[in-house]
Amino acid sequence: MRKIFELSPQNLEKLSALRKQYPEQKAIVLPLLWMVQNQLSYLSEEGMQFIATELDVPYMHVYSVASFYTMFIFEQPKKHLIEVCRTLSCALNGADDVKAYFDDKCDDDVEVIEVECLGACGGAPMCAVDGKYKESLDDAKLEAILKELKC
């Protein structure tokens, strides 16, 4: 038997609030994708099927939409995620070194990826650790991040 996805009670409540906020139900595909991803830490087939059923849209619509956006993931992620900005302002300020540093020091619990400009160019070089922005990175800050992640 396939696992059936269910929303947590809090999320169920949020869902009924969401339904009232948009003129058409289809509009909440994105909020629901977020909800499922936050609950499961990734988007499972069952989770997307749940959205399709709830909103009465085809499953492939949900998947097609989800696959368009880079922040959605379809497999169980590692424990931590470090997104190193690679775009110009950060590159000019040593993004490569930041990426190399994490690649070198992080253990298998941490996924280190490059992402495009995170809108923090004034704090270049920067990265996001589990979604939290860490800007104006220097040696001390990099070390602090590692400590935080206990690598």
Binding site: E24, K26, A27, I28, V29, L30, P31, L33, W34, L55, V57, S64, V65, F68, Y69, T70, M71, F72, E116
Partner: peptide
């Protein structure tokens, strides 16, 4: 909340996204 797509800053793409589409 968007989900990672620069093009969604373009106004009509933004609306498509806000309608639950790519």
């Amino acid at each position: 909340r968007g989900a990672g797509a620069y093009i969604c800053g373009e106004k009509s793409a933004l609306i498509e996204s806000l309608e639950g589409n790519r």
